[in-house]
Design a binder for these strands. Structure first.
Lengths: 243, 243
DNA sequence: AGCCTGCTTTGGTATGACCAAACTAGACTC
DNA sequence: GAGTCTAGTTTGGTCATACCAAAGCAGGCT
């Protein structure tokens, strides 16, 4: 059954490839919900039957879905349908970005955009952080202090502190952006020697930002954030000599 | 020739796929410059010979390169090597983002991040725009004024005005981000009726931002920008009823 | 009930073949 | 001799078939 109307023999290929068509068909079935999130794709041989195309075409279409992040294809299993999230979107360009970063000033440019964004976020926080947000910041700050002597723990609590700024607005894109920043910049930071006094300095910087937010002073908050970030950048540069 | 050492028969597939390996090999050859930008990839059949794999594997690897934006594969031509740029990186997630946008508040969330970023940029412009930057803004502003009666022209000059803020810092990532914003948000704006009086209002908004920058007043510049953007958002909402 | 074994399913790969568009080079015309 | 036409040669796109090995399953054994 389901012979459909497709011409069986070597297709008289017109302008576009059959693989693209099938890709679009599957794409639609996923976004329309006909193929449910978490469910596996039909077996390749079944898709072959259904659409009257060769397995080659099916594989290429599925591979494209996988590359675009619409399905998750583990080496030897049926591909699992994945609805797109901001995270998967950013994961998709992960390798691209990694290549961008090795270009001259690549890391610096990315880091600068982070400063730009996070400066705006701390300003926002200074203006409209509510009780709950401030409590979260305080908790994270305390965690910083407690972890000063434990580099790994401090690294985590450091990221957690910054993450809060990306959460405050409630815009779901921002936390994803923060994760992207940390993931992409991590290779630089990881190798940076982390000593207790560095952690102490960072804690102080965090506290300065926090205090400025408490005072509802966006200018001071931004200034503190920028000091903190440029300081961190200086540290990275000292570690790597130059970038 | 080039029989190499690969076992010819059906490969005893271990843990990972040969296509991934070949992908990584080609990936390296591209980023190392061994395969030059703009040059075509070798013919599939030649790659088959060189690496002792089947054409199936070669096709999958090349398709993966194409999906990641490392090569540009037109329907019937040899794939052309493309070095990654911020633009290609963002093009890669284009379809993903498009899907993100149809989710509840998708457009709004993206637009909010644009406001966040551009607000930060106009602040920056107010503080450190140099003569040349300001001249560019003036030129763009004049172009706005001139195009008020021509909707298409105004749309272009409108974008050009905003683009300047993304150029000022000299960070090459930002112009790419601007293009991504305009491309992704364009579907909404395109359908918006553009009347001369709307253009006039937008021109006035632009002028307010420009004036604030001239006065070196970041707070005023940000405020003017936010008014402009929220006004634009209101217009979009009125056009679509609700989003 | 729990473990073992063998059949079936399914993705990964290899081959070989054919089509049609693109490319190339030699023949032909002016 | 420059330009054009044409036949043969690439080359990407697709199809069909076959085999491997891991995963999944089911029936049988302990």
């Amino acid at each position: 059954m389901t012979d459909a109307s497709a011409p069986k023999t070597a297709s008289p290929q017109t302008d576009k490839r059959a693989a693209d068509d099938l890709f679009r068909i599957l794409e639609r079935k996923i976004s329309s919900g006909e193929l449910e999130e978490g469910a596996p794709l039909p077996p390749e041989r079944e898709i072959v039957q259904t659409y009257g195309v060769s397995r080659t075409v099916v594989r290429e279409a599925v591979l494209a879905l996988s590359n675009k992040g619409l399905v998750e294809a583990k080496p030897r299993f049926r591909p699992i349908v994945r609805k797109p999230s901001a995270d998967t979107a950013l994961e998709t360009i992960e390798s691209l970005v990694r290549r961008l970063l090795v270009q001259p000033n690549g890391v610096k440019n990315l880091f600068d955009t982070r400063i730009l964004v996070e400066a705006a976020l701390v300003r926002e926080a200074a203006v409209k952080a509510n009780k709950s947000d401030i409590a979260n910041l305080k908790t994270a700050l305390d965690a910083n202090l407690e972890a000063i002597s434990d580099n790994d723990a401090f690294y985590r609590s450091d990221m957690a502190f910054h993450a809060i700024f990306f959460d405050i607005s409630g815009n779901p894109l921002l936390p994803a952006i923060h994760r992207a920043y940390t993931a992409w910049l991590a290779p630089q930071w990881k190798q940076m020697p982390r000593m207790a006094d560095r952690n102490r300095t960072n804690y102080d910087s965090h506290k300065a930002i926090f205090d400025a937010i408490l005072m509802r002073d966006p200018d001071a908050a931004e200034a503190a954030l920028r000091r903190h970030m440029t300081d961190a950048w200086t540290q990275v540069q000292m570690t790597f000599g130059d970038i």
